[in-house]
């Protein structure tokens, strides 16, 4: 247990030493401080009558004239929709920006971990290679979990306290961000172990995220492809991580809808598991 604590501590210290991790923490703090203190909402009968940021009105409360009924109808926003909107925005920002920046930030971490003179020393300690890698991964995952919990949890708590409406499904964003970061991290880590180039790992990982944008449009693209090309396209769709489509799963959860398909999430998880398996195998077999 002491060896694992050493491995974890080393990863935490390394991540903390990176300015980007500290910057993410500051941005998360600013996000929920903004919502806590700068955002004022006038709630009338469950609807948003007005929203003010730093004291300035941001929504009209006069309403619009309905010609059929001949009455002025309030244009106040549904409180539920407002909360869903804010949370979706926070989730989206954390999911895309957080993952892209987070992966970029881990490049020096992996470089440091696999660097000659550092990895030799780590491997000479009385812990197996698998345990060493588990310690490293646990440190990275826990850091992402804490950062996303701090941001999403903080925003959720702040809004819930302000509105009195508690929607715990928003918190599902925390495991989604953490797990999908973990899936994409499997790529950068495994390629770095095999090629000893975290730069290459990062390029491939970003490439897969970009590819997932195209794969997410499979319903529109496949019908216009020939049979052979469609088969190749769908093979990619099933094999590679569906980073973009997972956003839809999360959106359905947040809006309280029934999730139509968990497939993008499950296939991404399988991809991550297989990639980690390859990474562990290479790490246990290669010379340093």
């Amino acid at each position: 247990m002491t060896t694992l604590s050493g491995s974890l501590l080393l990863t935490f210290r390394e991540l903390w030493a990176m300015r980007l991790t500290q910057a993410m923490l500051v941005i998360a703090s600013l996000a929920w401080l903004l919502l806590s203190f700068a955002l004022n909402m006038d709630v009338v009968e469950g609807s948003m009558a007005a929203v003010r940021i730093f004291g300035f009105d941001t929504t009209p409360t006069d309403g619009v004239f309905n010609e059929e009924s001949g009455e002025w109808v309030s244009q106040a926003l549904s409180l539920d929709k407002f909360l869903i909107g804010i949370n979706t925005f926070v989730f989206g920002a954390a999911y895309f920006l957080g993952t892209l920046l987070g992966l970029f930030a881990t490049m020096p971490l992996i470089n440091g971990f696999l660097e000659h003179g550092r990895i030799d020393l780590l491997l000479s300690k009385p812990l197996s290679r698998a345990r060493l890698l588990v310690g490293h991964l646990t440190g990275v995952w826990l850091t992402v979990l804490v950062l996303s919990a701090y941001l999403v949890g903080g925003v959720w708590l702040s809004l819930s306290l302000k509105t009195g409406i508690w929607m715990p499904q928003f918190l599902m964003a925390i495991p989604f961000i953490t797990v999908m970061f973990g899936v994409m991290y499997s790529v950068i880590l495994t390629i770095s172990i095999i090629s000893r180039s975290s730069g290459l790992g990062l390029v491939v990982t970003y490439g897969l995220i970009f590819l997932s944008i195209i794969l997410a449009s499979h319903d529109q693209i496949v019908p216009v492809l020939s049979e052979g090309n469609a088969a190749i396209f769908m093979t990619f769709y099933h094999v590679l991580p569906n980073f973009i489509e997972v956003v839809g799963v999360q959106a359905q959860l947040v809006e309280g809808q029934v999730v139509t398909t968990w497939y993008p999430f499950i296939s991404s998880l399988l991809f991550g598991s297989v990639t980690y398996g390859i990474g562990f195998f290479w790490f246990s077999r290669r010379d340093f």
């Binding site: 002491t2 060896t3 604590s5 050493g6 501590l9 080393l10 210290r13 780590l122 300690k125 009385p126």
Partner: peptide
Amino acid sequence: IYGRLADL
């Protein structure tokens, strides 16, 4: 940290 890794 290296002491921890050495299981001390």
